[in-house]
Design a protein around this nucleic acid. Structure first.
Lengths: 160, 160
DNA sequence: TATAATGTCGAAACCCGTTGCAAACGCCCT
DNA sequence: AGGGCGTTTGCAACGGGTTTCGACATTATA
């Protein structure tokens, strides 16, 4: 679930086709399959998971990874974190800018948005003559569930 | 204590020894070698580079990587980015909090500090019952050198 | 001091992601 | 339809980083 929907005029598939066109690349069966798969759900996903699901649809490992990179370049998805040495992506196109609180224990990703951050970064970038294109902000710590006391015996507290 | 430097009462080596103690781990020849090597210069470094230098000092690949993780856990170093699928680290202990502008083209890392960010994040985290332990903020784009026009033919502009 | 328990190490295997390459494909041209 | 040419694909190999495993070292137990 996300913060708020954003107006989307064309489908991801169409958007990707346009992107490919501008780079003189082709929309193939494999690439179409991958876009379908990626946008069939709005959850975060790990590249490796995706690639494995793709294997069942006659799309190879390398094509999977290659296309994920293209989707990122096209602005359809973005890499939000790296968990247990696996890359985690989420939809970017059609969704509002946000960042994440990441629980070190259970891995939960909590979305938040602070519009001040974009402005602050823009200012800093300008001061350094840097042309900002985007950012990734990962906040590490413990989510409320995980930072409560252990509770080793959650049930049958006083039944015996 | 000045703005740039942060008060450091004990050496990284000592700090690490304390950390190991709290986890019932031991300070060995290999771990000492690694701390020496890591803190012999204040520059950013890539794990792989380090591990290769360590090979010359009779420290294995696995021990190198394992100890880098321990150093991170101990708060002595932190991972600041991932470039070309290689992890980049820098000293954390004894250095003030900061983040980076990262040039997509040449890979330059430009440090900056915005104290507002810490406060903003603290507020957001509290709102979600999240116990924040740290963050990593990577700002992507082009540094001033790389975003100036291509200049493919730097010389002889109008000589012919 | 003997014995068990815990830590540590290096080698090799493994995992995720990338890349080089040859064969296959898509697309335009005639 | 057939030829030409750049693109795409899958395979296999590679690279960085992690994990497993057996041998060894250190500490605790007694």
């Amino acid at each position: 679930m996300s913060l708020e929907e954003v107006e989307v005029s064309v489908s991801p598939m169409e958007k990707f086709r346009e992107f490919l066109l501008t780079k003189n690349l082709r929309m193939t069966r494999e690439r179409a399959t991958i876009v379908e798969e990626v946008f069939s759900s709005h959850e975060h996903f790990e590249a490796e998971q995706l690639v494995q699901r793709l294997a069942e649809q006659r799309v190879s490992r390398s094509t999977g990874y290659r296309t994920v990179k293209l989707l990122e370049e096209a602005g359809l998805i973005r890499k939000v974190a790296r968990q247990d040495s696996r890359d985690v992506y989420e939809h970017d196109y059609g969704y509002p800018q946000h960042d994440h609180l990441i629980c070190k224990k259970c891995g939960e990703l909590i979305e938040f948005h602070l519009h001040e951050i974009g402005e602050l970064l823009e200012t800093v970038a300008r001061k350094h003559g840097f042309r900002m294109e985007g950012h990734r902000l990962e906040v590490f710590g413990l989510c409320d569930k995980c930072c409560r006391p252990p509770k080793t015996r959650p049930k049958k507290l006083n039944l015996l």
